[in-house]
Design a protein around this nucleic acid. Structure first.
Lengths: 165, 165
DNA sequence: CAGCTTATGTCAGTCTTATTGACTTTCCAA
DNA sequence: TTGGAAAGTCAATAAGACTGACATAAGCTG
């Protein structure tokens, strides 16, 4: 397509190339969040609820503290979101088994239903992009994204893959 | 690394693979914005100011309306940001030449200085990620991101490349 | 057991970014 | 000349985040 990374091109790290990468991230992230955002508009929920639901689904039984770190928000901020989800019967909070101070979080059936609805939309876009770009491009995509993460988040990302795979 | 896209693997579009892509986007975007956010903390500016500065630098002389569409925000929202940047002498607003209703936006020297400071940080991370992943991965990264954009934003993205290259 | 620490929850106040709606001024163009 | 477009502004509102302070329950350690 362009001259980016055609083989051994040593100039692929010019400022211009990097700026284009920055803009690509910006515009792509807009697309990435657009579909679930549209679904959530009209419901009483926003992107923060989506994120909480996603990770509770992904790591069932996770504690509040773990979710806090995963999402990179404060306790107070998460609590507001979590409270409404629990009140609305989408999330269940069970007292920890080994440590009764902890709360283990699970999606209820209704929670799982919303999760599927949201992730269906997001995965459809992801799937279309993956198909259009091809397997080799997907591998590169994942490599660059991973290299862009903060080390701590990269660990969290890998931990999810191990439990979820 | 993993089994993602090793050649002709036809199963690379499983839900699990797509979920991992979604999470990779989430965590990577956090890293992507972390450095400029850190710099802006303490200044009177936020991420919205960064975005405005970025695109004014990228497309000098752009109109308010064009910037609106580029950033995907409302006039009122942009105006608040733009006003402070103009008041603080980082952005200059000149009456349009051919159409006097329009305002053409430019960075002042001070504006360019801040732009460089912010983009240096962001590009450094981008550069490190590109280096770690290699040219071929970068090409794939760009392909997938582009496929993920809404068509209208893809056009805007290309328009920037033409003017900026 | 006493005291420290951890995990969670909550209240109050603030900030940034964004929204919708209404209205004005300026000015281009049919 | 009149309609509509570009920009700017005011007001009210919302989501999502923050800090700081405080409370409760429960685990851990001496």
């Amino acid at each position: 397509m362009s001259d980016v990374g055609t083989g051994e091109n040593l100039l692929f790290l010019t400022d211009e190339q990097l700026r284009q990468g920055i803009e690509a991230m910006f515009f792509a992230y807009r697309g990435f969040t657009a579909d679930p955002d549209r679904i959530l508009t009209g419901m009483a929920y926003g992107r923060a609820h989506h994120r909480a639901i996603h990770f509770i689904n992904r790591a069932p039984g996770t504690t509040v503290n773990n979710l806090l770190i995963l999402l990179g928000v404060t306790k107070q901020s998460l609590n507001r979101v979590l409270r409404t989800l629990i009140e609305d019967g989408l999330v269940e909070s069970r007292v920890g088994v080994s440590d009764k101070r902890e709360r283990n979080l699970y999606l209820t059936d209704a929670g799982q239903e919303l999760e599927r609805k949201l992730s269906d939309a997001q995965r459809a876009r992801m799937r279309a992009a993956y198909r259009a770009a091809g397997p080799q491009a997907v591998a590169g995509f994942r490599q660059v994204l991973e290299a862009m993460m903060d080390p701590e988040m990269r660990r969290k990302y890998h931990a999810l893959r191990e439990s979820g795979a």
